[in-house]
Simulated assay, not measured.
Amino acid sequence: MFIIARYELSRLIMTRRGLLSLLAFSLVWFLILRYPIYSAAQFFMADAPGGIIVSFFNSTIINNLLSWQVPELAVLWVIALYLFPVFCVVLTADQTASDRARGTLRLLSLRAGRDTIFFGRFLGQLLILLMLTLLALLSAVALVLMRDSTLLQPSLHLSAIILVNMMLVLLPYTALMAWVSSMARSARQATMYAVIIWIVCSMLTGWLSRQFPGLSILDMVLPGAQVQSLLQLSGWNTLSLAAIPVIQTIVLLFLGRVIMQRSDW
């Protein structure tokens, strides 16, 4: 399982598709560093042009973000919560799909069980996401230190909080792509399946919640459902919502495993 996970990480830097994905992520993140994060100190000032961002969030969220000792990381926190899941869906779409189309899953199954392949690919994608998240945080910390070298300790502390929470947020998205990839024959098809499932489940849970207020807990079914609540928390208190993505991940991995075990290659 760990050999397969390590191979997934190596594919990121040894294949054309992986390198293109890494280049796209790097370019987008450079633009984010250059503009919103670099200007973070002014971004939250009410009298600054960037202060218009406050209109997108409620006062509780804004007051919470204003309390951050390192404004650059506060902006990174907001951006990462909404942007990284998109990267996650794109990067983790091809876990088993293309191997199924090429017929190489049968060859792999001669050396490893289906569970080993399924969970090994899942773990490999998590390693990739961990590496990218670390690189994003380290680049932001370097930017902070260029402005004020005395902020090293609070920057590292906040970065640890962001890293743990981002991996929790990305867990169910990665599990979702593991599930749909076990049904698809290409990364594009897996992405389409994920979008369809997301839209249908979102509409269904929204309708049920409106018709039956007692079923409002269904709003927590979709990955990322806790993002708005996370923005209202600070520090390690954010881990109070950790159970939501963990449960979502377990359910989605179970569904993916069932498909993987029953599929005919």
Rank of each mutant, 00 (worst) to 15 (best):
Q228V: 12
G113Y: 08
A160Q: 03
A140W: 00
V227F: 01
T60P: 01
L239T: 06
L12W: 03
S263P: 02
L170Y: 01
L230E: 03
I161P: 00
P213G: 11
V258F: 10
I117P: 04
A80D: 11
V89C: 12
F212T: 10
R210Y: 09
L143P: 00
S55I: 04
P172S: 04
R185I: 13
L108S: 10
F84I: 07
Y82E: 02
G124Y: 05
I117R: 01
P223L: 08
W265G: 12
L110M: 13
L76K: 09
T191G: 14
V251R: 00
L222M: 15
I4T: 04
R262Q: 14
N63Y: 04
L9K: 00
L168E: 08
R257A: 14
Y82M: 15
T150G: 09
L222A: 08
I247P: 10
N165L: 15
I53R: 12
P85I: 04
V144P: 07
W265K: 01
S109C: 14
L151H: 09
R188C: 03
P213N: 00
R188E: 07
C88N: 11
S67N: 07
L168T: 08
I37P: 05
R100F: 06
G235R: 04
T60D: 13
L127Q: 02
D99P: 13
A194Y: 00
W179I: 12
R16S: 15
I32N: 11
T150L: 06
G214Y: 05
S67E: 10
I217F: 13
S229G: 07
A46S: 08
R16Q: 08
L176I: 04
V28F: 04
F119P: 03
S234L: 10
S182D: 08
L65M: 14
A112L: 07
R147P: 05
Q232T: 12
I259F: 09
N58W: 02
L123P: 01
S202D: 05
V164W: 00
L239E: 00
T174W: 01
M131H: 01
I162G: 15
Q153H: 07
E8G: 09
S21L: 15
V251C: 11
S59F: 06
L233R: 02
I196L: 07
L132Q: 10
Q248R: 07
R257M: 13
I61T: 10
L137Y: 01
P172C: 06
S26R: 00
A187H: 03
I197E: 00
L218N: 05
M131P: 02
V78L: 15
A242N: 06
S149N: 06
L33I: 02
R11V: 11
